[in-house]
């Protein structure tokens, strides 16, 4: 029997009272590690230039002050930004939020997901982490990337989402 009840806008499920799942806590450590490697790598040319060009004291101090400032920012930033990231699985869609200054919430209905991919870099594997990527139609702009999930969670999500996406095969 076909039914078509009227739906009031206010009765639609909102996202105000959802439980946001955070990323794996060890991801903060990984990002800090990666950033500190970058900082150290940046120090090498910095020192070389200072020594080779025999910079006067003031520019050298300014240069290194900038470096220290950048380093401090890069080491604290994961602690600020990563807790802002989170996802929610709902019955029919997945929500993902991120951003400190520019915040955004993305929603992907399961019946629009084309395929799902999990991947992990060698770094990720050391920390037992993985990245989950959801693809919708519409080219490269059409995918959502959730990094910093534990391998087990990423796998669970992949299976769950695939099942949901598969269950919603539509009548052409």
């Amino acid at each position: 029997m076909f039914q078509n009840p009227e739906i009031a806008l206010s009765e639609l499920p909102g996202t105000d009272d959802v439980q946001w799942q955070t990323l794996d806590p060890s991801y903060k450590g990984l990002r800090r590690l990666q950033n500190s490697l970058g900082i150290v790598a940046a120090a090498v040319p910095l020192v070389t230039v200072t020594v080779a060009a025999n910079l006067p004291l003031l520019p050298a101090v300014i240069l290194f002050a900038c470096w220290i400032l950048l380093a401090a920012l890069l080491l604290t930033w994961p602690g600020i930004s990563l807790p802002k990231r989170g996802y929610v699985l709902r019955d029919k869609d997945i929500l993902f939020r991120k951003g400190v200054i520019w915040r955004s919430v993305t929603a992907i209905p399961f019946n629009r997901i084309q395929h799902v991919e999990t991947s992990s870099t060698p770094f990720d594997r050391k920390f037992d982490l993985a990245t989950l990527q959801l693809f919708t139609a519409g080219g490269s702009s059409g995918d959502l990337k959730i990094d910093g999930l534990s391998t087990a969670v990423a796998e669970q999500l992949r299976v769950f989402i695939l099942e949901k996406a598969g269950a919603s095969i539509e009548i052409a």
């Binding site: 951003g99 520019w102 955004s104 919430v105 519409g138």
Partner: peptide, 29 residues
């Protein structure tokens, strides 16, 4: 026919209780 939806807010927009809505289609957003 929408593929996904994103709501984003800058600091300024949050302050003014505003947001931008981006609707992704298979042909672009």
């Amino acid at each position: 026919k929408v593929q996904r939806v994103t709501i984003s807010q800058s600091r300024y927009q949050r302050h003014k209780k505003l947001a931008s809505l981006r609707v992704y289609m298979a042909s672009g957003s």
